[in-house]
Simulated assay, not measured.
Amino acid sequence: MVELSIVLGSTRLPIREVLKMSRGAIVALDSTDADPTLVYVNDTLIARGRVIVNGEHMSLEISEVLPGKVTA
């Protein structure tokens, strides 16, 4: 099994705040739209990119694959 994570940003919230959230709640992240999106495979950072939104569709454009992280 391969676990893929795409990280837009992060934040720290006390569990009591998470439990108070309802559907549609907004969580502020520590990044901006200019910051790279990070791509992790099995908890290893392998690439950076950016999220592209086109209407209701989202995609990830990879701008950098980290050296020595991906093998064919």
Rank of each mutant, 00 (worst) to 15 (best):
L8K: 06
V51G: 10
S59T: 11
E61V: 10
V2K: 12
A25D: 11
M1L: 08
L66G: 02
S5E: 15
A28Y: 05
S59A: 14
E17A: 12
A47D: 09
Y40N: 04
S5P: 00
S31W: 00
K20D: 10
G55Q: 00
T71M: 05
I52W: 02
V41S: 05
S22E: 14
L66Q: 01
E3W: 06
S10G: 15
L19F: 13
R12P: 01
L29C: 10
T44F: 04
G9C: 13
L19N: 10
T37M: 11
L4H: 04
L45T: 02
R16M: 07
E3N: 11
G55T: 02
V7G: 00
V2D: 12
I26H: 08
L60P: 01
D43Q: 12
G24K: 11
S22M: 03
E61Y: 04
A47I: 11
S31N: 13
L38I: 08
V51E: 11
L4F: 11
G9Q: 07
V53Q: 12
L13S: 01
V7W: 03
Y40A: 03
E61P: 02
P36T: 05
V39Y: 01
I26D: 06
D30E: 03
R16E: 14
K20P: 00
G9N: 13
M21Q: 06
V51F: 12
A34K: 14
V18K: 02
